[in-house]
Design a protein around this nucleic acid. Structure first.
Length: 213
DNA sequence: GCGACAG
DNA sequence: ATCTTGTCGC
């Protein structure tokens, strides 16, 4: 199912390819992806939106069985196969992809968002609902407030209060993006706690999982 | 040995 | 992630 040693080896090899620089092309189409499970089956949903008005442009999904378990720190080996297949079904690849999970805020600085970005060579941002590794000070309670996430004295992410008096989310660069640009896009696409593109794919994948599987 | 641990 | 009911608050 999953060779832990090999998996870690792959992460350490691919982590050297991560680029923490702003996208080199303007972002007009922003996407998001998420995977829901039911028994040993999973369904990945991808959706793209116009960054300008956040209107839905296109969606795609892929269903298949899985034999890989969830192991903290190795989430990408379970979800990447689903996400890649769903993404390749899109007519147009987004300029930037929001991923439900961490980017470099990871023990080996190579979370799901980074893995997806490096494999497809696209800009990605990791957006998680809870912390995997690192230390931080709770950000102020108003929307837009943030604090840095550190690990070993290294800046690895942002803890952002995307809505007033609501738990913050953990944002970190996945690939081909920097902290500042990531913060900008996350706040710009968020009305509630979770960015709109991610809310959409989360609900969509859950619906398909319970109805079509 | 004990606690922590994305989804 | 998933299993689960009602309930409080913006």
């Amino acid at each position: 199912m999953l060779n832990l040693g090999k998996a870690v080896e792959i992460q350490n090899r691919l982590r050297t390819r991560v680029i923490l620089q702003p996208p080199d092309a303007p972002v007009n189409l922003i996407g998001a992806c998420d995977v829901s499970f039911k028994s040993h089956y999973g369904v990945a949903v991808c959706a793209t939106f116009n960054l300008h008005d956040l209107m839905l442009v296109e969606t795609s999904h892929h269903i298949m069985p899985t034999h890989i378990p969830y192991v903290p720190g190795l989430l990408s080996f379970r979800e990447l196969p689903f996400i890649i297949r769903a993404l390749l079904k899109l007519q147009r690849m987004p300029n930037l992809l929001l991923v439900d999970g961490h980017g470099i805020a990871h023990p080996r600085r190579f979370g799901l968002a980074s893995h997806v970005g490096v494999v497809l060579n696209i800009s990605t941002i990791g957006c998680a609902k809870s912390c995997l590794i690192g230390e931080y000070k709770p950000p102020h309670l108003t929307r837009g407030a943030y604090s840095w996430l550190y690990d070993d004295g290294e800046k690895i992410g942002l803890v952002i209060r995307t809505a007033t008096n609501v738990n913050p989310i953990f944002v970190s660069p996945g690939h081909r993006i920097d902290f500042t640009t990531a913060y900008k896009f996350i706040l710009r696409t968020t009305k509630h706690r979770i960015p709109e593109p991610l809310r959409y794919v989360d609900i969509a994948s859950r619906n398909i999982a319970t109805k079509s599987i």
